[in-house]
Design a protein around this nucleic acid. Structure first.
Lengths: 225, 225
DNA sequence: GTCTGCATTATTGTAGACAATAATACCTAA
DNA sequence: TTAGGTATTATTGTCTACAATAATGCAGAC
C-alpha cells in the first residue's frame, strides 16, 4: 500500500449507506468515482469496490459506461421487499418461539432498551441504525450466517425504501412493537408472536406512501412534480 | 480497451458457476487470480470483478490477503437456505394462485416440457440449469426484479449445496413435481399448490446428506476422513 | 531430531496511466 | 431560429507495474 489511506472500503460503504438512509443523498443522483475518490482521499479502485458492494445491497444501481446512481426502488419492488420480509421474519419468529436461549432473550431486551433511549434522546442516526438492527439481531440469533446475511440485505433495502417513501417525520419501527414481539417469543407464544410480527411489518409498510402515483417518476418526472 | 479480450465478466462467472455445480471445482479449492487470468486470457482486474460477483452469489468466499475459495456451505447454512426458500416460495405460489395470467401459465408449462426433454436425453448441464430455472421462473412471473434477484440468489446457493451434499447420482428437483405445482396454480388451488411446494422443497432437502457429521470438515478434516 | 527464526517465493492489494465511451457545448447550414 | 453534425470535455473501463502481505522452504541452534 503506497499511500496507506485512512478509510477502508467498508467505511466508505457505511458512510454512503448512512447518507442515503438520512436522505442526504437523494435517489437518482450519480455517485461519480473521481468525486468520491477525492472526498475520501482514496484511489478510484477502492471506490469502485465500495460501489459494487452498495449495488449488492440494492442501494445503488450501476449502469455500464454510465456510472453509479442512488437507487429509486419502484413501488413494486418496495412491496416485494416487505413481501419477502413478512415471509422470512414470520418463520424466524416461529423458530425462535420453539427454541431460544435465555442469553439471546437478554440480548434482544438489551437492544430494545437501547432503542428506547435513542428515541427519547431523538438521535436520528442511532434511531435508524437501531430500529433496523433489531430485525438484524433477530436474524442473527435465529440461525446461520446465511440467515443473518439475508436479513442484512432486506434491512438495507428497507432503509432505502423508508428513506424514499416515508411521509411522516417520525421513523417507523418503534421499540414498543419490538418489545411486544420479544416478550411473546420469550413466553414461547407462537401464534401471538407471529401475528405481532406480521402486523408490525404491515404497519411499517402502510406508514409509507406507496400510492401508485409515485411509481412513475424515475428521475425527470420527480423533479417536475 | 487495449486488448479487447474475448470473455466478459459475466461469462467468467457463468463458467465458474457451472464448474462448481458440476462438481468439477470442489469446495475449498483456491481460485487464484493469476491462474484464472491466464486461463480466460483476461487481466486480473476482470477476474477480481468476477470473483466479487461469485462471492455475492455465495459460491466463493473471499478472505482478505488470502484469496478466493470455493465455498463449503455448512450444514446449518444449507438448512437455512431451504428454510428461506420454503418461506418465500410458499408465498410466491400463494400469490400466483390468486392471480396468474394465461401467458405465464404457458411459460411455466413450456419450461417444464424443456425439463422433460433434458431429463430423457440426460444432458447434465441442461438438467442443472433447467431444474433451478423453474424456480427462477416462478420468481420472475410472480413479482418485481427484486423478487427475481432474491430467487436467483437462493437458487445459486442451492446449486452449490446440491453439488456438495447430494449423495444420489440423480439430480433432484424433477419435472414431475414441478408440473403438479404448476397445474395446481393454474387451477387456483391455493392449499394444494402451497402444500406441493413445501413438500417439494422438503423432498429436495431430505435427498441431501445433511447429517451433522459432515458439518465438521471444513477443508482438512474432509481430506482425513 | 525437532523447533525456531529468517530468507525466499508466490499471491493479493493498490495505485496510477491510458483507452474508450457517453454527454455536452458549439458551430455551421438551411 | 432551429436542426444536425462535430469537437470537446468528462467519466468510466481496463491494463500494467509496484507494494504489502502471507505461505513456504531452509538453515542453524538447542
Amino acid at each position: 500500500m503506497t499511500e496507506q489511506s485512512g478509510v477502508s472500503t467498508q467505511q466508505i460503504v457505511e458512510r454512503v449507506w448512512l447518507s442515503i438512509a438520512e436522505r442526504r443523498l437523494r435517489p437518482g443522483v450519480q455517485l461519480k468515482e473521481g468525486q468520491l475518490a477525492t472526498i475520501f482521499d482514496v484511489s478510484r479502485a477502492r471506490i469502485r469496490q465500495a460501489l459494487v458492494a452498495l449495488e449488492r445491497d440494492g442501494l445503488v444501481m450501476i449502469i455500464p459506461n454510465r456510472g453509479a446512481f442512488v437507487c429509486q426502488p419502484s413501488v413494486d419492488e418496495a412491496r416485494d421487499v416487505f413481501f419477502v420480509r413478512r415471509a422470512v421474519e414470520r418463520r424466524i419468529v416461529e423458530r425462535l418461539c420453539q427454541s431460544i436461549s435465555k442469553v439471546n432473550v437478554a440480548r434482544l431486551r438489551t437492544h430494545i432498551s437501547k432503542e428506547r433511549t435513542a428515541n427519547t434522546q431523538n438521535v436520528t442516526t442511532d434511531i435508524i441504525k437501531l430500529s433496523g438492527g433489531f430485525h438484524l439481531l433477530l436474524g442473527e440469533v435465529a440461525g446461520s450466517d446465511f440467515l443473518f446475511a439475508t436479513m442484512r440485505d432486506l434491512i438495507a433495502r428497507s432503509s432505502l425504501i423508508t428513506a424514499v417513501y416515508r411521509n411522516t417525520n417520525r421513523f417507523n419501527c418503534g421499540p414498543d412493537e419490538h418489545a411486544e414481539i420479544v416478550e411473546a417469543i420469550a413466553r414461547g407464544d407462537v401464534s401471538t408472536a407471529t401475528k405481532l410480527m406480521e402486523h408490525h411489518l404491515e404497519h411499517v409498510e402502510t406508514e409509507l406512501d406507496l400510492s401508485e402515483i409515485r411509481d412513475l417518476p424515475h428521475d425527470l418526472r420527480s423533479a417536475l412534480a
